[in-house]
Computed example of a mutant assay.
Amino acid sequence: MNQLKSKFLELLKSKDFLILLHRGAHGGNIVENTANAVNIALREGADIVEIDISMSTDGDFFVFHDGGERRLLDDSRNINTLSTTEIEEKYYYNELGHVLHKKVERFSKLLENIPQDVFLNIDRSWGHWETFIPYLDQFVDRHPYFMLKSPVKKELLDILDKHPIKYMYFPIIYNTDELDLLETYENINLVGFEVIEKDESFEFIISQRFDKYKQSDYMFLANAINLDDDTLLFGLLTDEVAITRDPDEAWGEMLKMGINTIQTDWVDLLLRYRDTRDKK
């Protein structure tokens, strides 16, 4: 077993299913993608916390999901086009549109202010992997807790394949062609999949192609978050259905298909659902 995934496999086997919180716990003056958001996520019961990575034009890494600049920073420019100085001059706005005293955090600063043993789903970093993955090497004690995610693209898989430190990896995967490509790589530390289902057939997740992985210790992640009213990440099985109607109608149906990790915006309610299932 690759030693960088041993701790994660222990976690995976210890729960009915894992809970991954989207961008950490945020609301009020607690801003997404910050150390506060990560720490509160852990207190609320998340097993894994998602963060997003952007890079300044100077090559410094910040925890921020590009595309959210107007909402969070009152700026129309993409953060990846800004210098470190320009990013560090910006102040966050809260959900009511009021400016805060808080600023975008460097990745290194966030790590200084969260526990060492928190599993981080590192999203949106793949555009910077040529420099970001070697940058991760310095954080030796955290290597078993870094989980990289990306679309399935040859140029990205090549970077993972060649890098000497085999960080845990789970791809965002849509179809069997992507699975075929992924399976040509033998030196990638694959720990699971984020399976995207754009309609209600769920033909991919229930297909025989995943059987050998379901019979082993792999994470199968369904993304229950609602980005809007139209984007489908796992058919019509969403957080909104779970929390406004019945959790069995969404989260429960995911679990029936072999999903063992759910990404959510509602960690407290999903944790309550897991606790209820455990007592049955």
Rank of each mutant, 00 (worst) to 15 (best):
L179K: 01
D180C: 13
D180R: 15
D180P: 03
D180I: 15
D180N: 13
L181M: 12
L182D: 05
E183Y: 07
T184H: 11
T184K: 13
Y185C: 04
Y185P: 00
Y185T: 06
E186T: 14
E186H: 14
N187C: 02
N187Y: 15
N189I: 14
L190M: 06
L190I: 08
G192N: 09
G192A: 10
F193G: 00
F193N: 00
F193I: 00
E194Q: 09
I196Y: 11
I196K: 12
E197L: 13
E197A: 09
E197V: 06
E197H: 08
E197T: 01
K198C: 11
D199W: 13
E200D: 11
E200Y: 08
S201H: 12
S201N: 15
S201Y: 13
S201K: 12
S201Q: 11
F202E: 08
F202R: 06
F204P: 02
F204Y: 01
F204L: 05
I205L: 05
I205S: 08
I205C: 07
I206D: 08
S207D: 03
Q208T: 13
Q208M: 08
R209E: 11
F210N: 01
F210D: 03
F210L: 11
K212S: 13
K212D: 12
K212P: 02
K214L: 08
Q215E: 15
Q215S: 09
S216M: 14
Y218C: 01
Y218T: 03
Y218E: 01
M219L: 15
M219E: 02
L221V: 12
L221Q: 08
N223I: 04
A224W: 14
A224C: 10
I225Y: 10
I225K: 02
N226E: 01
N226D: 14
L227W: 14
L227K: 15
D228E: 11
D230I: 14
L232H: 15
L233V: 03
L233T: 05
F234C: 01
L237C: 13
D239Y: 12
E240D: 09
V241Y: 03
V241Q: 03
A242G: 15
R245D: 15
R245C: 09
D246L: 12
D246R: 05
P247A: 09
A250R: 02
A250G: 14
W251A: 06
W251Y: 09
W251C: 02
M254E: 00
L255Y: 11
L255E: 08
L255H: 07
K256E: 09
M257V: 01
G258C: 07
I259D: 02
I259F: 03
I259N: 00
N260F: 03
N260I: 01
T261D: 06
Q263W: 05
Q263N: 00
Q263T: 02
Q263K: 09
